[in-house]
Design a protein around this nucleic acid. Structure first.
Lengths: 113, 113
DNA sequence: GTCATGCTTAGCCATATTGCTAACTATATA
DNA sequence: TATATAGTTAGCAATATGGCTAAGCATGAC
């Protein structure tokens, strides 16, 4: 299993949770401290911390502590592998359609003879 | 929690497993029966069946049975919600940069006075 | 120094996930 | 009809996930 494969798994796994996606969406608008991120979720702090560490391990956010406040910020470039995967998948799919197209074209040509 | 939100969760969850992504990649090139999909994974059939049903519930593949053979095919449009989410996320992020830009511009103008 | 605030750690519980084997059904094929 | 093939079902075990409480630590406000 290639390394970027586990990266992708981590990335997709991190995004598979609605709470984590909501946190990311909030962070897309700018950095925020943990407590502020926790408030709209209705979840307890330790639970939110866990979500944050999943996001951090997936490379989707970075955090830093200033005094007793930990500030979280999004790292949007972390989404690139996902975009790449999507594009590869699309290329494969379209390649398949092209081959199908070639095949049909060939069939038609055979018929002409 | 909106409905398309659970869709997204299912979608991301389905894609978070390397075996399932490998199966999808294979299917992007064309339909295949279960046993053929199972072979390269090195996993037992019931395990692969489970992966397939996860993919099917996420809307990523469709299956149909002809005689004793079940054929699986990819449904590439199932990836659209993911693309949409990515685009929304990017829009938010870029909107943030724009606002930052406006803010800086405003600061500069203030300075001019 | 005392107290409130913001986070952190440890650990518990329920459920979900991912693998397996064993046993079964249904369909080709000889 | 007998046998091999393709898939299916049931159920077990290990681990991961997502929630919680309780207790702790560090820092800022009074």
């Amino acid at each position: 299993m290639a390394k970027h494969d586990t990266d992708l798994s981590q990335l997709f796994h991190a995004l598979a949770d609605p709470t984590r996606r909501a946190i990311l969406t909030r962070l897309a608008e700018g950095p925020a401290p943990v407590t502020e991120l926790a408030k709209p979720t209705g979840l307890r702090l330790p639970t939110v911390m866990r979500h944050l560490s999943v996001l951090e391990e997936a490379g989707l956010i970075a955090t830093s502590k200033d005094g007793r406040v930990r500030t979280c910020a999004m790292l949007p470039e972390a989404l690139t592998p996902m975009r790449t995967w999507l594009d590869e998948q699309r290329a494969l799919w379209e390649g398949r359609l092209d081959r199908l197209d070639d095949y049909v074209t060939k069939l038609m040509e055979e018929r002409e003879k």
